[in-house]
C-alpha cells in the first residue's frame, strides 16, 4: 500500500481574468482519483474564486463556481481561506460559497468545508505538506 501523501493546491489568482483558477480546479478533480490527503488554500486574489453569486452570462465564459460545491463528492473537505486576504479585500466568510460536506463517521452531520485561517495557521499547514501545487 503506497503511503498517503499530503497534497496542497495553492490558489492565488482571481477566477475569470486568467485560466489559472479553472485549470487548478480541473487538476484537483482529476487528482482526486489518487486517494491522497488533499487540501486547497485560497490566498490573495485566489479568495475571489469562491465568491457567491458569480454570473458569467455577460462575459461568455463558463461559470465554474458551482463546481466548488462538488468537491465534497470527491472527498475534498479541507478548504483553507486566508483571513488576511479576505480582510484586505473587504470580504467575510458570508461572501463566499457555503461549501459543506457530510461526515460519514458522525451520522452524516453536515460540516463546513471552508476554514478561515490566519497567516500563522496557514503557514503551519503549508509546512506540513509533502507536495504543493501552485496556481
Amino acid at each position: 500500500m503506497p503511503q498517503i501523501k499530503k497534497f496542497l493546491y495553492v490558489n492565488r489568482k482571481a477566477p475569470h481574468g486568467s485560466i489559472y483558477a479553472l485549470e487548478s480546479l480541473e487538476v484537483v478533480l482529476v487528482g482526486a482519483a489518487f486517494d491522497q490527503d488533499v487540501s486547497l488554500a485560497f490566498i490573495d486574489d485566489g479568495v475571489y474564486q469562491l465568491m457567491l453569486n458569480q454570473n458569467t452570462n455577460g462575459i461568455g465564459v463558463k461559470n465554474f463556481s458551482p463546481t466548488y460545491r462538488a468537491l465534497s463528492d470527491y472527498d475534498i473537505n479541507q478548504i483553507y481561506v486566508e483571513k488576511e486576504s479576505l480582510e484586505l479585500r473587504g470580504l467575510k466568510q458570508e461572501d463566499l460559497l457555503p461549501l459543506t460536506w457530510e461526515d460519514e463517521d458522525e451520522d452524516w452531520a453536515e460540516k463546513d468545508s471552508i476554514q478561515v485561517v490566519s497567516s500563522e495557521e496557514l503557514g503551519d499547514i503549508i509546512d506540513k505538506q509533502d507536495i504543493i501545487f501552485n496556481f
Binding site: 482526486a32 461559470n63 458551482p66 463546481t67 463528492d73 470527491y74
Partner: peptide
C-alpha cells in the same frame, strides 16, 4: 446542471 461538471465514475457510483 447543479455542479457544471460530469462526475467521476466513483462519484457517480456512490451517488
Amino acid at each position: 446542471e447543479e455542479y457544471q461538471i460530469a462526475p467521476a465514475v466513483r462519484v457517480l457510483t456512490k451517488a
